Simulated assay, not measured.
Amino acid sequence: MLHHLELWVADLSASTGSLGWLFLRLGFEVEATWPSGISYRHQDFYIVLESGPDVSQGPHQRTAPGLNHVAFHAGSREQVDELAIEAQQHGFTLMFADEHPFGGGAEHYAAYLEDTSGFEVELVAQF
């Protein structure tokens, strides 16, 4: 079981407005804040967004070695669609729009979203 995920971000304010908004929308709650970060908790799991002097500048490169994206269960197909639309009002771009919502294959209903820093999030519908 995953305990926590720490994401270093170049712009904490921008990431809080996009990724932070999404975490809250998915049912996470703000657990703690400090000058260079914020943590969001959902049950026994938490996610940290942190920025500071050790963070390399520039956009996230999902195709570079390291983390490509994070995927979340996001409810029904209707809920995934609703979140995908709302997310675009919070700094996300719908990826693979020409294949949406089956960018992962005919049996995988999901929205693939990228925030302004280049971080990808996948919202997966439960069947």
Rank of each mutant, 00 (worst) to 15 (best):
M1K: 04
L2D: 07
L2I: 06
H4V: 00
H4K: 00
H4P: 01
L5H: 01
L7Y: 14
L7G: 12
A10Q: 15
D11H: 07
D11E: 14
A14Y: 01
G17Q: 14
L19W: 05
G20I: 06
L22C: 10
R25E: 15
L26Q: 05
F28A: 01
F28P: 06
E29M: 03
V30G: 07
A32H: 11
T33C: 11
T33Y: 08
I38H: 08
S39R: 10
S39Y: 12
S39C: 05
Y40E: 11
Y40N: 03
D44Q: 13
D44C: 03
D44T: 05
I47F: 13
I47H: 09
V48T: 15
S51V: 04
S51T: 13
P53I: 02
Q57Y: 00
G58M: 15
G58S: 13
P59A: 02
P59M: 03
Q61A: 08
T63H: 11
T63Q: 12
P65L: 11
L67G: 12
N68G: 06
H69R: 15
H69E: 02
V70I: 15
A71P: 05
A71V: 04
A71E: 14
H73I: 01
H73C: 03
A74W: 15
E78W: 01
V80H: 12
V80G: 11
D81Q: 10
L83I: 07
A84P: 01
A84V: 14
E86N: 00
Q88K: 10
H90T: 04
G91M: 00
G91F: 01
G91L: 05
T93F: 07
L94G: 08
L94T: 06
M95R: 13
F96N: 05
H100R: 03
H100L: 04
P101F: 03
G103V: 02
E107G: 03
H108I: 11
Y109T: 06
A110D: 07
L113I: 14
E114T: 02
D115N: 13
T116F: 09
S117P: 09
F119T: 03
F119V: 03
F119K: 02
E120P: 02
V121I: 15
L123T: 08
V124Y: 05
F127Y: 08
